[in-house]
């Protein structure tokens, strides 16, 4: 699958799950943010890092230094399994076939892309033995019939979550208005200045 979005080309597709190849540079880690308690996690982007824990500390400031955040998690890009990507009126769930169950099950987080060009948003969790099966189960359990263009399945035990105690990282964040350009009201100040000059 070729895409002009480099993230898409970087991701493995479900049909070709392979062992991780060693990298000759820092790999990427996908970053998911819960903007407020109760809101679904959504994909925000990626960071480069040598390992999962480093990715977590780098993602925290790269993606949550402004606005609000209540929780964050990161996962190795190679642990995100993606379905085919569809366009137009093709719902990706209609392309998903049943998948055979292997031994053992684990929890998978399922993400959906419901509008091209937007972020992947958390859809729900399922128990499955493989990412392929997780997506097949998502089709029967989480599919609402609404248009979905792409599905991601991420095994929960591969994720570096934010612990309950760590949620205090963001307590003072709403006060850091100085990080938001609109807080400086540059336009208003310019307008005042120009009026003063005119008068």
């Amino acid at each position: 699958m070729n895409s002009i979005d480099p993230r898409v080309n970087r991701l493995p597709i479900v049909e070709i799950v392979k062992p991780k190849a060693p990298l000759d540079q820092f790999g990427t880690y996908e970053v998911f943010v819960e903007p407020k308690p109760g809101k679904p996690f959504q994909h925000e982007g990626a960071v480069h890092a040598p390992n999962l824990e480093m990715a977590y500390i780098l993602a925290k400031e790269t993606f949550t230094r402004r606005f609000t955040c209540s929780s964050l998690y990161v996962v190795d890009t190679r642990d995100v399994f993606v379905s085919p990507l569809t366009e137009g009126d093709q719902n990706v769930f209609d392309l998903i076939e049943e998948s055979e169950s292997a031994n053992g099950t684990s929890d998978f987080e399922i993400y959906q892309l419901s509008k091209r060009g937007k972020q992947h948003v958390f859809l729900g969790s399922v128990k499955a033995s493989t990412p392929q099966e997780a997506i097949a189960i998502a089709k029967t359990k989480l599919n609402t019939g609404k248009m979905v263009y792409n599905i991601w399945a991420i095994e929960a035990n591969k994720i570096r979550f934010t612990t309950e105690e760590e949620k205090e990282y963001w307590i003072t964040l709403p006060e850091k208005k100085f990080r938001d350009a609109s807080n400086y009201k540059g336009g208003d100040k310019l307008k005042q200045f120009l009026e003063k000059v005119k008068a």
Binding site: N51, E53, I57, E166, E168, Y169, I171, T172
Partner: peptide, 23 residues
């Protein structure tokens, strides 16, 4: 109030030291 900020600062420092201190 700033306990959470400091908690992140020390996590950041400790993670880097452990990373480069064993690399």
């Amino acid at each position: 109030k700033i306990r959470g900020e400091l908690r992140y600062h020390t996590l950041h420092a400790n993670t880097w030291i452990k990373q480069l201190g064993t690399a």
